[in-house]
């Protein structure tokens, strides 16, 4: 029984050692990756930074953004909301990244979401301090489930399979953006998709927008908000329009420029082929929209 107890103790301590090692150093694996925070921090400065949700990942073509010698980087996480966007910005500034222009995803439904790690990928991109900050962002009281998931279980699979996973995934990115996405769908399929119905705004997101604006002013960063195109069903949805109106009002009050998809290209939303679901652009939609956006910004 003594042997058994010693075995259990050694196994548990060995596991704890691996957990701490992983929590602190897993972000180093991404130092030279084509995506994520670590490679951007290593780079040290960026001219155009796009922080947003999957809307940015699917809606912006990094190769096109970087044409003609421009220096752009996309930092996108699934379900990213202003609270997490603020946190990412703070983390970059804390790590001395110099940002000239910051473009933030103006996704109306993100105002309705609670603070949550909607994309666990972000946890792999930060050290143990960053993880603790994210944990504190989610919880005011100790929560064992979040603690276990943030510090132990999340991304263990990615780290364990890193030599294979990295070789497959890294080449699919270019400066934070994906190289190929998905093909568009026909209008019948578009009609059959379930509608998004969110209307309750979480005030913490509004506060986060104010703080992003303040932070950009303090750090001399030119801030702009961008709405990527959504399908016509979404654009015509009353909930969506109300949320967008609220978003616009906030930005207007603070005199922050914003560009609606309607200003950039009126046609995209009418063509289902430019989308692979209600809110995400397809390959052709992404290419078209990114070119139009560059042209619009250059004016």
């Amino acid at each position: 029984m003594k042997k058994l107890s010693i075995t259990i103790i050694i196994a548990v301590f060995f596991t704890l050692f691996i957990i701490v090692l992983k929590a602190q150093f897993e972000n180093k694996l991404l130092n030279n990756a084509n995506y994520g925070l670590p490679s951007l921090i290593k780079k040290g400065k960026i001219d155009n930074l796009f922080i947003g949700s999957s809307m940015f990942r699917q809606g912006l073509d990094s190769k096109i953004l970087n044409e003609k010698g421009s220096d752009s980087y996309i930092l996108s996480y699934n379900g990213n909301n202003p609270i997490l966007e603020l946190w990412s910005l703070k983390y970059l500034l804390k790590n001395n990244v110099k940002i000239n222009h910051l473009y933030i995803d103006m996704y109306a439904y993100s105002l309705t979401t609670e603070p949550s790690i909607s994309d666990s990928k972000i946890l792999m991109e930060v050290d143990i301090k960053g993880k603790l900050e994210l944990y504190n962002l989610l919880n005011s009281k100790f929560n064992i489930s979040d603690f276990y998931s943030i510090f132990i279980s999340k991304n263990t699979e990615l780290v364990a399979t890193w030599p294979i996973y990295y070789q497959i995934i890294n080449p699919t990115y270019y400066k934070g953006g994906i190289k190929t996405g998905r093909d568009g769908i026909d209008s019948t399929k578009m009609e059959s998709l379930a509608m998004i119905e969110e209307s309750q705004v979480d005030d913490r997101n509004i506060e986060a927008i104010f703080e992003i604006i303040k932070l950009c002013q303090e750090n001399n960063i030119q801030l702009r908000y961008i709405e990527t195109p959504k399908s016509l069903r979404i654009m015509e949805n009353e909930n969506y329009q109300n949320l967008m109106a609220m978003y616009q009002k906030i930005l207007e009050e603070k005199e922050v420029p914003y560009y609606l998809s309607y200003n950039i290209n009126k046609e995209i939303s009418y063509n289902s082929y430019y989308f692979f679901d209600l809110i995400h652009l397809s390959n052709s939609g992404r290419e078209k929209y990114t070119r139009d956006l560059i042209e619009f910004l250059s004016k």
Partner: peptide, 19 residues
């Protein structure tokens, strides 16, 4: 192989268990 098996199970459960 008792110790090895127990150690393997503990490490696997703690690191890769889905709770």
């Amino acid at each position: 192989n008792f110790c090895f098996k127990i150690s393997f199970y503990i490490v696997s459960i703690l690191l890769f268990g889905v709770f």
